[in-house]
Write a protein that binds this DNA or RNA. Structure first.
Lengths: 180, 180
DNA sequence: TTGGAAATTTTAACACCGTTAATTATATTG
DNA sequence: CAATATAATTAACGGTGTTAAAATTTCCAA
């Protein structure tokens, strides 16, 4: 019982350390040894609490997705889909490493992708439900977010456009083009 | 003179070997040792012809981008933007590893991203020019491709949707939603 | 309280990776 | 042919994830 609690705590310590690294330095900086140093444990102790580094990453991903959802629902300037999609984009502009982790690094989707994909689509639909947009087409929320993801992909991973202001213009234009 | 030719040939051998691996097995399977084995050279010989593995990858990326452009311009069913965007998507569905390499693996964009981004946008515009679409908005080609890239990102990197037929439906719906 | 069993942590090791320096082999040229 | 320049190879370093064995700590009953 007490043991259980302690185990959960230590697991949480590893998760927190990994999240810190992922947020500040990105996945390239994450390693078993680095987490060991950050937590004061040996580098191998992690393997008593996670099957492998992938599992640790996947747990972080799920938590980040939750953070993202909360950020969108709480910080959007209005309930217009434009502002909500902007809030979504801003989350990843603020934490570009998380975008790479969640959307582009295939290594760490692995076993959990089903659970993860479902949770992502749930978020998309939740945001649309919270917005003032009405559409019969079930696909529209997913498509809209996909389009924004494509924009983020170019901006975050490839520095295109290279300027933030221009990125914002592209974001506006993209939402305009989607005509939702 | 003869030397120069020989050097170019060996460089080409490494590039070809790397391209084969990237196409068939993706970037995770690529390593200096693996290329050494595939070409019959030692693993360190590559460093006489490329600054590092990144440079080798970047050269491959540029060549793949060219292949992609040729594929779109030659194999699209018609000059409608719908068919051309479909041809674009099909190229990466056929070689999913290349999509990961070109668009999502930040490691290998590195130094060359400017040259590479420009070449990508050139391709987008070339495709639009070759199509029957007319638009005043310079941004439209880039935005349309970004949206398709977002779709590819979900399908290739995250298996969403998990079914090819459904992906094709999403593709149609995305182009529809863009109303171009 | 103490001794032994169970649980946990750490150390050492293995197989990879990219990369570099020194060595060996090959080719070129006087 | 010998000396030199060029190219390829081997050995090594520091990094990675991961596992097995050793060391340590925790726990509980006598």
């Amino acid at each position: 019982m007490v043991n259980q609690l302690k185990q959960e705590n230590i697991r949480g310590i590893f998760i927190q350390a990994a999240k810190n690294t992922l947020k500040s330095e990105g996945i390239k900086a994450l390693s078993a040894r680095e987490i060991g140093k950050a937590t004061g444990f040996s580098y191998a102790t992690i393997y008593n609490y996670f099957k492998d580094m992938n599992e640790l990453c996947e747990v972080c991903m799920l938590e980040f997705l939750e953070e993202c959802k909360e950020h969108v629902l709480s910080s959007a300037k209005s309930k217009s889909i434009k502002d909500m999609l902007k809030a979504y984009a801003m989350f990843f502009v603020q934490y570009p490493g998380l975008y790479a982790l969640i959307f582009t690094d295939g290594n760490y989707v692995g076993r959990f992708y089903k659970q993860f994909s479902e949770k992502t689509e749930d978020m998309y639909k939740a945001v649309f439900d919270a917005s003032e947009v009405e559409t019969d087409n079930q696909k529209v929320p997913v498509l809209a977010f996909n389009a924004i993801n494509g924009l983020l992909l170019a901006y975050i991973n490839r520095n295109t456009p290279s300027d933030f202001a221009e990125f914002m213009q592209m974001l506006d234009a993209q939402i305009e083009l989607l005509s939702i």
